[in-house]
């Protein structure tokens, strides 16, 4: 199967602190890959390099057939419309209503759509996450779980081919975390998206992972399905599954 994301020999450091060194991985179409690793190991840095928020020191990242290092501003914006990013903090625009949060990317990418079409897309995205009645609310009026769902609806609004999830269940109670994990799977089935999910919540990992990549010391330490890694005798791997 053709990979939608290819990362080859990626290096990233901040001053003296080496985060990624010689990291490589691929993500195939319709595949959910969970990147597992301890806090501060560089998981978020990795997906920020993929979306171009951070620039790698060395290495190659190809997303949907395009080498992101070679893209100019406009090309990068077009590519980003095909790749969505769910922030750990949700990053909802706090000066806008839920409707405006969802309309914001739509009005800038799909400029030929009518107001009615945009309205219908917003309502559909909200229905997908089960929060149609929050359309005119402000982000501050929403609970943590609702904010996460709205952020998820916003990532879906442009019908992305790839979704990058940065710790989607962190800070949520176990029940809401489970709901978000289920929602990720529903979205994947409905829209056939490929995903990279950064997480160390093992419930979320088990529910969502098609394949797991273990990030350790800046490298792709090992990869495999949940069951494969769960059976591993390597102490470095076992500590995550105990």
């Amino acid at each position: 199967m053709e990979p939608v994301i290819t990362i080859e020999h990626l290096y990233k450091r901040f001053g003296e602190h080496v985060v990624l060194q010689d990291f490589s991985m691929t993500v195939d179409k319709d595949e959910n890959v969970v990147v597992l690793g301890r806090s501060g190991v560089g998981k978020s840095v990795l997906i920020k390099c993929i979306i171009g928020l951070l620039r790698a020191d060395k290495g190659k990242i190809v997303v949907l057939g395009e080498d992101i290092e070679s893209l100019d501003h406009d090309q990068m914006d077009k590519m980003r419309a095909r790749v969505a990013f769910l922030f750990q903090s949700n990053a909802l625009y706090d000066s806008m209503t839920v409707r405006k949060n969802l309309e914001f990317p739509l009005r800038r990418h799909w400029i030929d759509r009518t107001r009615e079409e945009i309205d219908a897309l917003v309502k559909e995205a909200l229905s997908n996450v089960g929060l149609a009645d929050t359309i005119d609310m402000m982000p501050e009026e929403l609970s943590g779980g609702m904010k996460k769902r709205i952020a998820l609806a916003r990532t879906l609004i442009l019908r992305p081919e790839i979704i990058l999830y940065d710790e989607p269940t962190t800070g949520l109670d176990p029940v809401t975390g489970k709901e978000i994990s289920n929602l990720i799977m529903e979205i994947q089935k409905k829209y056939h998206t490929s995903s990279i999910i950064i997480s160390h919540d093992m419930h979320c990992v088990r529910r969502t992972a098609g394949r797991i990549v273990l990030l350790m010391d800046g490298r792709n330490y090992c990869s495999g399905t949940y069951e494969e890694l769960n059976k591993s005798d390597d102490p470095a791997v076992k500590q995550f599954f105990e």
Binding site: I51, G52, L53, H73, M76, D77, K78, M79, R80, A81, V83, A84, F85, F87, S89, A91, L92, Y93, D94, F104, P105, R108, H109, R154, L158
Partner: peptide
């Protein structure tokens, strides 16, 4: 505060300049 709460990054990654 938009920068700190990653709202500017969220606009950036949605390609909305």
């Amino acid at each position: 505060s938009m920068k700190v709460t990653e709202q500017i990054d969220a606009m950036e990654v949605s390609g909305t300049n």
